[in-house]
């Protein structure tokens, strides 16, 4: 379970998130939608502490994962990031072979057992629906794959270290429609084993893949509801306006 309690977040003097509280359940897909700059990506990146990489930022409130405040001192951020995987907007495979890309998280974690690594790489590629396309060229450069394949490779890479939560920051926005639908199918399948939070610009995508949807605007969580309800009968007028395309 992921929970935010009265979260405020600042880039310097600019307040990017305003008093956000919400709960995301296990084995569900939660989508964040909203216009550019509304804070949805910033909010997502709080949960694997990626925002810390940016200088001059400040957080108040609590971010809890399974009841534990992930910003308390005793938390090892590298351990945290092993449990909470992330997939980025642009596919970012490393300049290594397909195999090494998936094995990377295990290797930096100090896993030496070759047999285990091999097995885990295969499992992850199978889970990411990429195995059949790459099984004969695992030694080839990851850059030889198409954009959609690269993104599924990045998903496999995140799966390899057995996270419980996967954060996806607009994972399909740089992909063509066919690759996009493959990623969406994959999200449906992965939901059985993982808790998924996805940021998307594409409202149809949110409607297709998610169980719950949060609508952000100007750093505020305007509405958070079941996806069906959100798209058929939203409670707030702003949501209605955004979803029907009257602004945004």
């Amino acid at each position: 379970m992921i929970e935010a309690k009265n979260v405020n977040f600042y880039y310097g003097n600019f307040q990017a998130l305003k008093d956000i509280s919400m709960v995301m359940d296990d084995h569900t897909v939660t989508a964040f939608i909203g216009p550019s700059g509304c804070g949805k990506s910033t909010f997502l990146r709080l949960f694997n502490r990626m925002n810390e990489l940016i200088a001059n930022t400040r957080l108040t409130g609590e971010c809890l994962v399974n009841g534990e405040n992930i910003y308390q001192k005793s938390i090892d951020v590298t351990e945290l990031r092993k449990k909470i995987g992330m997939v980025f907007q642009k596919p970012n495979p490393f300049p290594q072979s397909i195999f090494e890309n998936v094995a990377y998280g295990l290797r930096v974690d100090g896993v030496k057992d070759k047999h285990f690594i091999k097995q885990r790489v295969e499992e992850s590629l199978v889970s990411a629906a990429l195995w059949n396309e790459v099984k004969d060229k695992l030694k080839k450069s990851a850059f030889e794959l198409s954009g959609g394949q690269q993104q599924r490779l990045c998903i496999a890479r995140a799966l390899a270290i057995s996270p419980s939560i996967i954060l996806m920051d607009e994972p399909a926005s740089a992909l063509d429609p066919i690759s996009t639908s493959k990623i969406e199918d994959l999200i449906h399948v992965l939901k059985k084993d993982y808790t998924i939070v996805i940021v998307t610009h594409n409202m149809q995508q949110a409607a297709r893949v998610s169980d719950k949807t949060g609508f952000f605007m100007l750093g505020t969580l305007i509405e958070y509801n079941d996806t069906r309800k959100m798209f058929l009968n939203p409670e707030k007028e702003e949501t209605q306006n955004y979803i029907t395309g009257r602004f945004g």
Binding site: M50, L53, T78, N92, P93, G105, V108, C154, R157
Partner: peptide, 12 residues
């Protein structure tokens, strides 16, 4: 993106 990609996988 290569740095964030690596850090997000739990690398130091």
């Amino acid at each position: 993106s290569f740095r964030t990609g690596s850090l997000a996988l739990g690398a130091s």
